[in-house]
Design a protein around this nucleic acid. Structure first.
Lengths: 140, 140
DNA sequence: CTGCATGCAAATCTTTTGCATAAGA
DNA sequence: TCTTATGCAAAAGATTTGCATGCAG
């Protein structure tokens, strides 16, 4: 729990903090590499874990291959576009609000949650007809 | 989309259908291997994908290392015990009910969701004092 | 027969680790 | 000086894939 300063972590943190697109470790690596050409992917992973441990960011898996990193450290729902792959933050929902909304029997004491919606974002829906393509994935 | 019958798939399907514990591919493999000693893990993965494609099961990632397979094909919330690792199904919630409960702005058209609660199940909470241990993971 | 399915091994991918060296306190 | 951090390469774990052969239609 006793971490000492490192330039690498500084850059990694700063990069993540400036994003809302939930980058993967590799995306962070590629980005930070521009400023610190010698940084290694292992260092990125290690620091991402340290930062998560320090409560500076959250790690999340949305179902696809790699984990994502989010500077928003509170639990909140996400929206994943099946078309362009973008991951959007949604308005925050405190866990007890969710518990209330879901009048489900909770099979235990809840400490956190993950809520992800899948669909087609406005941008993609709009561009579906115009043949425009915004992000990654194939537009079928 | 044209699948022909296979004994392997038959057994895999039957195994999954009889479970509520969301087994991993490897768990399915080990279980089915008792009846079909020559089956390979690759075949299990392939058939799990086929079955998912046929709508016979759902694949889900709860955050930890391996994906899980669920015979319940409709969207429904899950509860994951951080203590024993067990994954429990929760009462079903139709997507539009969720949308209503969350008076969030949906950044697009929603087609499905994943909702997972993390906490400590009743069993573990009860046994925490008695030193009893139910499932896998370490009890800290 | 003809083509999908299987078993096996090798290949991928993502994430973690071991280790010698560098850097922070 | 003592300890944590880094870079590199190797290891690990999960899932996928190539290929020759087997089985269903």
């Amino acid at each position: 729990m006793k971490y000492k300063y490192s330039k690498q972590r500084e850059y990694i943190k700063e990069y993540i903090m400036g994003r809302t697109d939930h980058p993967t470790a590799d995306m962070v690596y590629k980005a930070v590499k521009k400023d610190l050409p010698n940084i290694s992917l292992a260092t990125v992973y290690r620091n991402l874990m340290v930062l998560a441990d320090m409560g500076e960011l959250n790690r999340l898996s949305i179902g696809d291959s790699s984990d994502r990193f989010d500077p928003k450290t509170n639990d909140h729902p996400h929206f994943v576009c099946k078309e362009c792959g973008s991951i959007l933050d949604m308005e925050e929902e405190k866990i007890d609000e969710i518990s209330k909304k879901f009048s489900l029997e909770m099979p235990g004491e809840i400490t956190s949650y993950k809520l992800t919606f899948y669909g087609i974002c406005e941008k993609c829906k709009a561009s579906e007809n115009s043949g425009y393509m915004e992000n990654n994935k194939k537009s079928a």
